[in-house]
Amino acid sequence: MSMFAGILIFLGLALAFGLLLGYAAVRFRIEGNPLAEIIDKKLPQTQCGQCGYPGCKPYAEALAKGEAEVNLCIPGGEPTMIEIAEILQVEPKPMQAEATEPKPKMLAVIDEDICIGCVLCIKACPVDAIIGTTKMMHTVIEKECTGCELCVPVCPVDCIDMVMEKPNLKNWKWPEPKAAAERTE
């Protein structure tokens, strides 16, 4: 008698817990990877691909899976790296040497005499800063260009140069004092 009661009780328990967990699985269903979304929001969204991933979203997904290092986002620099490390609860890693010292902002400029209108640079540009169409000369919208250099290698006639941004009233600033720069290092 007691044996059958035991079997019945455990069958009933297993059934009840199974139903509870089944309900919970439906109730707490996760769409995609929420961690990737959180990291994606912290990334600069320039889609520059300097991290080695096709854009900010794929890099965020790789980070969420733990497949990527936290220090690859060059436009985001150290602040972004620290934010990502905080979200993932890992030790912050120093940025690569070239990323730590702030580069002067560069702009892509198309030499319009050489441009053959192949549209390859338009496809490469992550922020749609290049305008033009097939067999017509292209040009760069200075305001939109992030200086990511992705258009440089794709140009078949090497007509794109990276130049220093010309200082104007909006972006001019005092040159950094030497002593202060050395102290912060």
Binding site: L20, L21, A24, I30, I38
Partner: peptide
């Protein structure tokens, strides 16, 4: 059995509410 069920439930709840 009952502990395993509670843990399974907690795991799903945490996954939903706090992915980090």
């Amino acid at each position: 059995l009952s502990i395993a069920a509670v843990v399974g439930f907690t795991e799903m709840a945490i996954h939903k509410s706090s992915p980090a």
